[in-house]
Amino acid sequence: MTTPARTDRATGTATTTVDPAAERQGLTLRDVVLTFGDGDDQVAALDHVDLDVAPGELVAVVGPSGAGKSSLLAVAGGLTRPTSGSVRVAGTELVGLSSRALATFRRDNVGFVFQSGNLVPALTAIDQLRLVEKITGRRAATAPLALLDAVGMAEHADRRPARLSGGERQRVGIARALVASPSVLLVDEPTAALDRRRSHEIVELLARETHQFGVATVMVTHDHDVLTHCDRVVEMTDGRLAPVQS
């Protein structure tokens, strides 16, 4: 496992030196700009953003509402095409890929954990994971039940989301994101619907899985309590990214 460094080396400038292996495996954003609208209404959701996340590293993104945090995740995960700049995940440049190629790429390399889990209502916990196997068309490297066990949800494997608490749903969501053994894990406000204790549990879990599976994880959060579990914290303001001294 890569030992994540608690430094600020990867943010702010494009000239920072990065471990070449980490660059190949993790997530790299270079000079990324994302604008919405045109003319006077133009909004720069991302304003020349640079970010490197190494495998096994958990980076938290904080910032006020509307700062561009979700936009950062959307661009990093190939859901939104940036206006300019470069996005590399596991050594692949995403800018320029077709929608179909992006879907395939996400399927094989990117894990998402959504707010409040965003599970499929009709499926039991274990089936949420099996659905990903159906989508990717291959078996998970770690069996679904073992993954559920890793997030402490093995005994609720046969429950549908309606019968799970918010924290339990979030755990299943994390297990689901790990099924395809992604290189990058993108997490949007995982603790928004949870109390303090559950929030800590979930982010601890994310940190543990990030380190254990060697995933480059970016987590957007409003919750400053949970930042202690993160390897590094960056702050987003008006589309700009700056390191936060811990």
């Binding site: 395939t104 790429f105 399927r107 998402f112 959504f114 965003n118 599970l119 499929v120 989508i135 689901r176």
Partner: peptide
């Protein structure tokens, strides 16, 4: 849920 599945990479 369709948006979620598409994000996950379902074609």
């Amino acid at each position: 849920e369709l948006a979620v599945m598409r994000a996950i990479g379902a074609s």
